[in-house]
Structures are given as structure tokens and as C-alpha cells.
Design a protein around this nucleic acid. Sequence first.
DNA 1: GGTTCTCTGTAACGAACGTTCTAACCAGAA
DNA 2: TTCTGGTTAGAACGTTCGTTACAGAGAACC
Lengths: 213, 213
Amino acid sequence: MCNERSNQYCGEMNDTTLPAQADPALGTRERLVRTTSRLMQRQGYEGTGIKQISREAGVALSSVYHFFPSGKQELAAEAVRHADLEFAGILREALTAEADPAEAMIACTRILATYLRDSDWLDGCPITATALETSGRVPDIHQAVVDAFAHWRELVAEKLRGTGIAEDDIPDLAHTVINTLEGAELAAQVSRSEQPLEIAGRHLARLIDSYRG
Amino acid sequence: MCNERSNQYCGEMNDTTLPAQADPALGTRERLVRTTSRLMQRQGYEGTGIKQISREAGVALSSVYHFFPSGKQELAAEAVRHADLEFAGILREALTAEADPAEAMIACTRILATYLRDSDWLDGCPITATALETSGRVPDIHQAVVDAFAHWRELVAEKLRGTGIAEDDIPDLAHTVINTLEGAELAAQVSRSEQPLEIAGRHLARLIDSYRG
DNA sequence: GGTTCTCTGTAACGAACGTTCTAACCAGAA
DNA sequence: TTCTGGTTAGAACGTTCGTTACAGAGAACC
């Protein structure tokens, strides 16, 4: 594979330096989950190998199958659940930064843009790539993805409650907020620019304001 | 790989029946590109193998390297360009279905929802999975993805011109329209429901109307 | 000291990966 | 007919894939 024809590909594809190198103070199992989550964020499910995970986590290959007896799918599903919680933390922090819900949208897009830029436009949504590759084909992972999206929508819905928006409009707005953030983050990653996220923040703020009584 | 532990995975992962089986009337090269595009739409770049492509296209493996001497990356980049044009056709058709730009948004989401449902929620945006896996790592494919997104945004921008929206607002609106469609399609695919797209249509229509003078 | 249980180091399995090579095939032109 | 150019069939290359097996390290408990 790594011959003269595909050298640039191999050279760039696997020599990724993880932003947070696996912390040896963490438990072995936890280190595996975090490393898997970070690798799948960048390379997707099919692009991330078990051996690469064990290598970068500093964990023996046999240990992977000790902690996750049914193999890659089980580890990947756990990694998606970890990413769910981690991203929820970022989202919650951004949403509470501003009291006004419309202002909070702009804070969200700013935080996501900062994470993206700081990772040289590599760390977008941690589960999108995995979600697409496994959608409808690997039930355990698919379910973890469904749960994560529902979780994030609920965080947005909570923020919108009690701000003058009719209760009936809130679930739909939460849907569009998460989906637009998702799409804008993808566009920002591909275009290596904060612009799509900045635009999305402004438009989401305007949309939310238009629903306030 | 296909042992008792991962049987469900293998069973569902590669026995996909393509919606449009490779048309033998097409040229060999064209058949390769279309098959690659369809497979990468569902399985992503890393999840799609050259041998699977040649098998499903009914083309000799050696022919792949005859038509695409630099291998998988070249074929994948061409497949992204093909998907660009194909999706642009769908988008153009949807946008011209309604004269009013806000109504056209709803027509767009309806058409995308129909395509999704008819493929049992497997055929979402044809390039998103590939875009994420290769973003910033495989320059040729990355460029094709950037071009495709720009192309689709321009189609939306054209639709918005001359409808009472200030020229300065149009590029930003086109960004958010494409990005929201992208995110909503992902959500619809994962949740196996038209609801996210239906909601996105309504909210995009409202957003656009709010910009009309 | 022994016993038990958890975890790891090492090696190997068959299969699939992307790629390369060469001998043939088969049209149309000479 | 022979030649030629584009296309293919088939086998093989070395590497990586996910997974399995097993012996041994290491601490904890009796």
C-alpha cells in the first residue's frame, strides 16, 4: 500500500498526532475508549483499526479483547457513547455562557469554531463520520448515535424553555439547531474556515427570536 | 473477519443491493464511476474496496487501473465529481418546482426525504461520509468536495436572486440552506424519519421570508 | 508458600486490502 | 493476413485487517 504511488496518502493518513495523547494516569479501559473516540472522529469507523487504537493508547492488543470481548463494534459503540457525553459537556458550557437563547447560539458556533481551528480543522463533530458509515448496518453503534443526537437536542430544548417560545415550537427548533450546527460544522471543516459556523450562529439566533412571543 | 462474532456485521455490510444496478449499456469507465459513487455514498471511502467496486460494476479489476492509473484516490475523486453533478440535478429540479423561494425550500426537503425513504434510509448526501473521512488528508478528493459544496450553494443563491432579498444577504443564506439541508438529511437518515427534513423545510422557508424586503 | 483471578506479551490465523505484472484477447487499420 | 492499440483475465505481491489462542506476569487473598 505504501509505495511510490500512494505515499502522500499513507504519510498523511496515519501519522496523526492526537491533540490529547492518551493519559497514562487513566485506567486502561478508559484510555482505550478515549483513543477510539478521537480516532473515529477523524478517520471514521472503517478507517480506524484495532491495532492502531491499541498502539496509540499504549495498550496491548489482547487487552482490547479482554475489555471488549465482542470486538471492534463493542468498542466503537462505547466510544460513541463517550463522545456523546463529551460533546454534551461542550454544548452545555456554551449554552450557559449566555442567558439569552439567541445569543447562546452565537456562543455555540464560536466555541465549535475554536475547537475546529485549534485542531487544524480536523476535529469536527465526533460521531458524524461513524454515524454515516454504520447507519442502518451496525445496530449497536447506530443506537448509540441515535441516543447522542436525542441527548444534544434535549440540551438545546431545555435552554429554549421559559424564554417566551411556545412549548409546541421548542422540539422542532431544537431539531433545527442541532442539525444546522451539524451541517455548518461539516462545511467549516471542509472549507477550513469559521465562516459557515459564524453564519449559522447568526441565522439560528434570528430564527429563535422570530419565535419569541 | 466473517466468523461467528461478527456475522451480523458482514452479513449486512456488503450484501447491499444497489438501487440502480450498473447499466451494461454504459461505457466501462462510466460504469466504474457510478458504482463507486453509489458505494461511497453508503459505505464511505475507507469502507469501499476496489475489488467490491469492480465486482459490482461488472468490470475487470485490471480495468480499474487502466482507466484510473493512480488508483483508488483518482477513482474516488472522479466519483465525488459525478455525485456533485447528479445531486445538483436533483437540487435544480426541486428548486424550480416552486416559483417562490420559501416554498422551494419545502419542495427540496420533500424530494430529499423521498429519495431517503425509497432507499430504506440508506442514500443520504452522496459525499458527506467521504468528505469527513478524507478531509484534510487526501487533497484530490478534498478539492472535489469543496467544489461540490460551492456548486450547490451557487444553485441556491441563483434561486434567491431577484426575490426581494438584499444581494448582500444571499451568499450567507445559501450557506445556511445547504448546511441545514445537509444536517437535516443526516438526522433523517439516522432517525429513519422524514421529520427532521420536514422541520428544516419549514424553518428555512421562515428564515428566507424574514429576509425579504 | 500456595492459589486464584485479572490482565498482558507474543504469535499466529484466514481473509481482505490496494496494487502490480504479464499474457492474452479482440477490434480495426495496414 | 499481419500488425497495432486498447482492454481484460488471472495470478500474485506484500501489508493490514479483525480475531483467536495461550502462556505468563502480577497482585490479592488464604
